[in-house]
Nucleic acid binder design. Structure first.
Lengths: 348, 348
DNA sequence: TTGTAGGCGTTATCAA
DNA sequence: TTGATAACGCCTACAA
């Protein structure tokens, strides 16, 4: 049994509005009216046509419909990768918000590669999407001109992006880091380390800023030796905590750029015979799924990813529908999640 | 600064083949030839037209092109949810395979809801996709007729599906479970429990079958009391192991339907004061990311998800291009991942 | 209430 | 080598 049996043996073409019209003995205009429940049609014929259409398995061609209407009801979604918790939480929010509207979603993955990202967005334009959302982007300073050239709204979200773009939604990273740091301070810690990432990651600077503000607000002097760079991965956390612990006066707590870094810290501390949270308090950022499964379960800061998706979509739809929109970025609050890696200082 | 500045200030309509033709003083036919580098055109006019098109920022309308050509170079991808490791591993494989071909991907999430799934697939048909891949499906016995009615190839993959559909790619669940069970047997275990899921999950039966075959091959009698149902979640594992441990002769090892079940077992065993792997060996299925982060790291069986995606795509493209295709399901091997929850029996 | 006819932006088939 | 013209499938005035 080959393909032929399933496909080619059925040379019957796809049902069109024309074929339905013929079968119903009316013109396509009438069928069109029935399908789009326009007023000017008798209930009887309408019902009859609908029944016939149903029976013939007729599904309107979006292609033709869109060509006529000069719209596509389609948006493009370019993501770093699908295998990422952040993306996995945002995309459903966008998709669900779109469900009611009848929009379709084109998906493309760019793996944080500039050329791929550019290609993906160009392909979307070729496909005549009405708007584009990019989740994590490495392109800098290109989107505004593309948006203008194409007349297609582009909204940027995600941990990596061109923050100069006028249409963005982001988490309050500064506030989140401040929350984390103040939590540790409230537990009595005064020597608090920070493991970040290289400077070019914009959001990292926000988080570092939040850390510094928290210290400042509480009259704790900022000490550069307590700041070490990481790499947003476990390795960086592992190495970072080793460095911090080898200081003459090591910190009693550490704020990490993200959960992966924090998990690296947990390992590094364990390897160095330092107990968490007894000897060292640790806090991450992101609340990745495995945060609750590490030993001990990680205290962290959670972003409201579904809300980010919703807001980004709302922004995009507003732009598509020519609604006025402030170009100020939408900034969403974060939430402290206290688990077991944060405890009072031993001395207290 | 409002949206207007970015979009509406550009009231110039999108360039069309017609406007390019006018500007070049030729007919659209000639322009079409120039753009699609057809033979019958003089190099001179071709160059001139191309230059003008470029200058006008002309991009052909995919909509019109597809309508005329009756092709869309687009496939539909209906997934259970994006926030699932299995999906997250398969989708990139499909996307990457498609990248070279110039096909676009429509994404839709159905959350294992029959009506949503039906709608998603119908929407794809409306969008005139050339093929559809459904990742995890609850629709039974519908796809074959849809495929025939629409003339659109449909390939099913994922842990849940209509196995009667002619075009499917799946993991060798039976073999995987056999692998897991034989691993435990080779460690000296003879009383091996099994925590499964309700019968209606087809793939679960395969896994149970693999478990039984392994016992049989090794001359170990099958004992129904060692088989308890689970729910594919932690709760089922937790409860299941409590039940098994309360047996007069509890098992020394347990094969779980999936990793979540196994993690539940780990908790249940811990709560009951049973040490893993010293008193009880545990093995899961799927190798979810957190499998390596639980304590102790979980032994499990991994599916070759990227290969599943690749095979599904290859199958779909073959069907689209009217290549002959066996209707036999493609079955891909699994791999044993030994970590620390499986150890020899204490008595040995 | 129903039908006619033109248009949406391309491609493709004939003629010229 | 170029141009007219008919699809493609649907929508929407305008007519009947």
């Amino acid at each position: 049994m080959s393909k032929k049996d399933h496909k080619s043996s059925k040379p019957t073409r796809r049902a069109t509005i024309k074929s339905v019209a013929q079968r119903a003995g009316v013109t396509i205009t009438t069928v069109s009216r029935a399908l789009n429940n326009k007023p000017d049609i008798s209930p009887a014929t309408k019902a009859r046509i609908l029944a016939i259409a149903e029976e013939m398995g007729y599904v309107p061609s979006t292609l033709a419909r869109n060509l006529a209407a000069q719209r596509t009801y389609t948006i493009g979604l370019a993501v770093r990768t699908i295998a990422d918790m952040w993306v996995a939480e945002v995309v459903p929010a966008i998709e669900d918000g779109l469900r009611e509207t009848g929009y379709g979603v084109f998906l493309s993955t760019h793996y944080l590669n500039a050329e791929r990202e550019r290609q993906a967005v160009k392909a979307f334009h070729g496909q005549q999407v009405e708007g584009i959302i990019v989740i994590s982007s490495v392109l800098q300073g290109e989107y505004l001109s593309l948006q203008q050239e194409w007349g297609t709204p582009i909204v940027l979200i995600g941990p990596l992006m061109d923050t100069t773009h006028p249409y963005t939604v982001l988490s309050d990273d500064e506030g989140g880091a401040r929350l984390a740091t103040e939590h540790l301070i409230s537990l009595g810690h005064r020597r608090i380390g920070h493991i970040g990432v290289p400077d070019w990651v914009i959001r990292a600077q926000e988080r570092l800023k939040g850390y510094r503000h928290a210290l400042q607000r509480n009259g704790i002097p900022y000490e550069p030796s307590l700041i070490v760079p990481g790499d947003a991965h476990q390795e960086g956390g592992y190495q970072g905590i080793r460095d911090l612990l080898s200081l003459p006066q090591p910190p009693t707590a550490v704020v990490c750029f993200n959960d992966l870094t924090a998990i690296g810290v947990l390992r590094g501390a364990h390897a160095a015979g330092v107990r968490v949270p007894k000897d060292l308090a640790v806090i991450g950022f992101d609340d990745v799924p495995m945060a609750r499964f590490v030993e001990p379960p990680l205290s962290t800061v959670r972003q409201n990813t579904p809300a980010i998706g919703q807001q980004a979509l709302a922004m995009l739809l507003d732009l598509i529908n020519d609604k006025e929109r402030s170009i100020a970025p939408v900034i969403l609050p974060t939430e402290l999640v206290v688990r077991e890696t944060s405890a009072p200082t031993p001395t207290r």
